[in-house]
């Protein structure tokens, strides 16, 4: 076993050069419901590198959206509780700020686009109106100037005939076009960080590629940091510098994209990649992942992935494995890692 201590957070290679834009530390979020308290995010830590792209993968229900809503300060106040952690944005803890301070960052320094392009725009207002509103929420500009900027944004997200589209209502646009409008809204005030929560899940495959392309251009041309969430590790691999793999509300593996994909160290990641762990004899074939995500209200005592894990051994049923460093910048929460060593 690797001797590195997993409790302190080892510095990632890129992060050594510049401080990360966003540092999430030990974030835990639970929901109170009739059926009891449900921990949706359990001690998650990750960084979004300045000017870079962090990818977050995980199956449905692994806590990806809840984590991003926590960053945005948009968790439903009646039911959600942030029970631990900090979210440092440019060194300041968002969780310690007042509601109005967070609101002034929301939509200006940090923006988000959502999983549901069809329903995320208000049907009662024109798209131009909705983009202008995003600008005027944070900047004192004349209507004329806001209008010109809105049309410019529509052009940047490659919507054809932006002047005409400006006065259209959302129902006239396709899903892909609506997601572009959402991106235009998100970019309205030149955010430092763009959180894209499964921006392509609801779209056709060809449109998906175009949206990913657009996000890449935004990152490169504007230097916007992107936190890209998806359950599709392939989609993330094309864009992300680093990958965080979430399972049942916790981070089970993180590291540089090439490393995590080329050399996954958590059996869950291996399963996500849908591949045989190593092309060597004696491997455990694993195509897709059998079983289902556990009920977060009744988690098993040991490793949460143990019931589905082909590598499972005795310690896995007793202690929950902590995230520990296997190589500098590559961490996994697995008793059996490195998986090469497993017979």
């Amino acid at each position: 076993m690797d001797g590195a201590d997993g409790h302190s957070l080892p510095v990632m290679p890129q992060a050594a050069a510049a401080a990360p834009l966003l540092q999430v530390r030990d974030l835990s979020v639970s929901f109170a419901g009739e059926a009891g308290i449900m921990p949706a995010v359990r001690g998650a830590s990750f960084d979004v590198p300045a000017g870079g792209c962090l990818g977050i993968v995980g199956e449905s229900g692994s806590g990806k959206s809840v984590s991003s809503l926590a960053i945005m300060g948009l968790l439903p106040p009646q039911t959600a509780r942030i029970t631990s952690g900090s979210i440092l944005f440019q060194g300041r803890d968002l969780l310690a700020m007042s509601a109005s301070q967070v609101r002034s960052l929301r939509g200006s320094a940090i923006s988000m686009i959502f999983q549901e392009p069809m329903s995320s725009l208000n049907p009662a207002f024109t798209i131009g109106d909705q983009i202008m509103e995003a600008i005027q929420a944070h900047e004192r500009v004349s209507r004329r100037e806001a209008r010109d900027r809105a049309i410019g944004l529509l052009r940047q997200v490659r919507i054809p005939a932006p002047e005409r589209r400006f006065s259209d209502y959302p129902h006239k646009l396709s899903g892909g076009m609506r997601q572009r409008v959402m991106i235009a809204i998100a970019l309205a005030c030149e955010p430092k960080l763009l959180i894209a929560d499964e921006p392509t899940t609801a779209l056709d495959v060809t449109v998906q590629a175009q949206i990913v392309e657009l996000l890449r251009d935004i990152q490169q041309e504007r230097g916007t940091s992107i936190m890209l969430i998806s359950h599709n590790i392939g989609l993330i691999a094309g864009l992300a510098d680093e990958i965080v793999v979430m399972y049942a509300g916790g981070v089970v593996e993180r590291g540089a994209t090439a490393r995590v994909i080329g050399h996954p160290e958590h059996p869950y990641t291996v399963g996500l990649l849908g591949a045989v762990p190593r092309a060597e004899p004696g491997d455990h074939p694993l195509v897709g992942i059998d079983g289902a995500v556990p009920d977060l209200r009744h988690l098993p005592p040991g490793c949460v992935f143990e019931p589905r894990c082909p590598f499972s051994a005795a310690p896995c049923r007793q202690d929950e494995p902590a995230l520990r460093s296997l190589l500098p910048g590559h961490l996994a929460a697995c008793h059996m890692a490195p998986l090469d060593a497993v017979p």
């Binding site: 945005m72 948009l74 609101r103 939509g107 988000m112 959502f114 208000n122 929420a137 944070h138 959402m182």
Partner: peptide, 14 residues
């Protein structure tokens, strides 16, 4: 509870 209200909040509106 609609998604567009979440968008409105995400814009930082009051």
């Amino acid at each position: 509870g609609a998604d567009y209200v979440r968008t409105a909040r995400a814009k930082g509106l009051s």
